[in-house]
Design a protein around this nucleic acid. Structure first.
Length: 277
DNA sequence: ACTTTACCCTGTAAGC
DNA sequence: TGCTTACAGGGTAAAG
């Protein structure tokens, strides 16, 4: 569920929670498949004693840099959430993993749909971060870069924006929003984008993501699949959305109804008038 | 090398 | 109220 702005918001909150310098003292695994590390025989045994040096984001991953050159990665996928509690979870219905700190606090990974994954990696071990593309808010996302990487790509631009090996961190909401802002049809083949469209796309991606970041992410609806930051804090970006989940509502630019189609197995929202093929 | 498809899971909301 | 269906912001593996 969470994309770059949501994950970044959570990382900011974690960094404000006085975890740096602390040490893990134990772990409890409630749903074993949550632990994805291929050769981590027992995360619960390996975690105690590891200190937290840094907490960062890469793409949609939360990265805990630990002592002994180890790393703990968390990917929330569709329905993952984090909660920082005073002790081991008592009544969380969807607790999949809990990590206890020496000061007694416990970071609980909640995930109704069980798609989320956690890795504990040793130095030099193959990491899912290795495959990630550029950070969209870094200078690496340049027009020449986009031009190079989209050359020869016949897939729909919407599909390519969701491809984490090209650009890391963009998901369904911000792909739709950026394409609307750039006035590009979601089904346009990547290679069909003219230089001017490339410039608009780069600019739109960065604008849309930064705006969402300022609002601490997007929280839609009331369901459990909704985005929440640490300990259930919702974001405020939903009021900034122009097309996402606004099927049949008027386009903010031309007032014609927004359409919904399916691209890459994902709902895709766009204005057929403003975003021509 | 790139693209498409099936699949992983559970919860919520809408329609009847 | 209860049942059924569609949908959900993530990604992978395998086949074409």
């Amino acid at each position: 569920m969470p994309e770059l702005p949501e994950v970044e918001s959570i990382v900011r909150e974690l960094n404000q929670a006085d975890l740096i310098g602390g040490r893990w003292s134990g772990a409890r695994i409630y749903w074993p498949r949550t632990v994805a590390a291929p050769d981590a025989p027992d995360l619960a045994a390996a975690v105690p004693g590891l200190g937290i040096e840094r907490i960062a984001r890469r793409g949609k991953f939360i990265v805990f840099e630990l002592t002994q050159a180890r790393r703990l990665l968390i990917h929330l996928r569709m329905s993952g959430r984090l909660s920082l509690d005073k002790g081991w979870p008592q009544c969380h219905a969807h607790a999949r993993l809990a990590l206890r700190l020496e000061d007694g606090r416990v970071l609980v990974f909640l995930d109704p749909r069980k798609f989320g994954r956690v890795w504990l990696l040793a130095h030099g071990e193959p990491s899912p971060l290795d495959a990630l593309g550029v950070e969209p808010l870094s200078p690496a996302l340049s027009v020449p870069f986009l031009t190079r990487r989209l050359a020869g790509r016949t897939a729909a631009i919407k599909t390519l924006l969701l491809n984490q090996t090209l650009i890391a961190g963009v998901g369904n909401i911000y792909a739709d929003e950026a394409l609307w802002e750039a006035r590009i049809h979601p089904l346009a083949p990547g290679a069909a984008l003219r230089p001017d469209a490339m410039r608009r796309l780069r600019r739109a991606l960065r604008r849309v993501l930064r705006r969402a970041l300022r609002a601490d992410g997007t929280s839609l609806g009331t369901g459990k699949g909704n985005f929440y930051g640490l300990n259930g804090r919702p974001g405020r970006n939903q009021t900034n959305l122009k097309v996402y989940r606004r099927t049949r509502l008027p386009c903010p630019a031309c007032a014609r109804p927004i359409e919904r189609i399916v691209v890459a197995q994902r709902s895709t929202h766009f204005c057929p008038h403003c975003q021509k093929r």
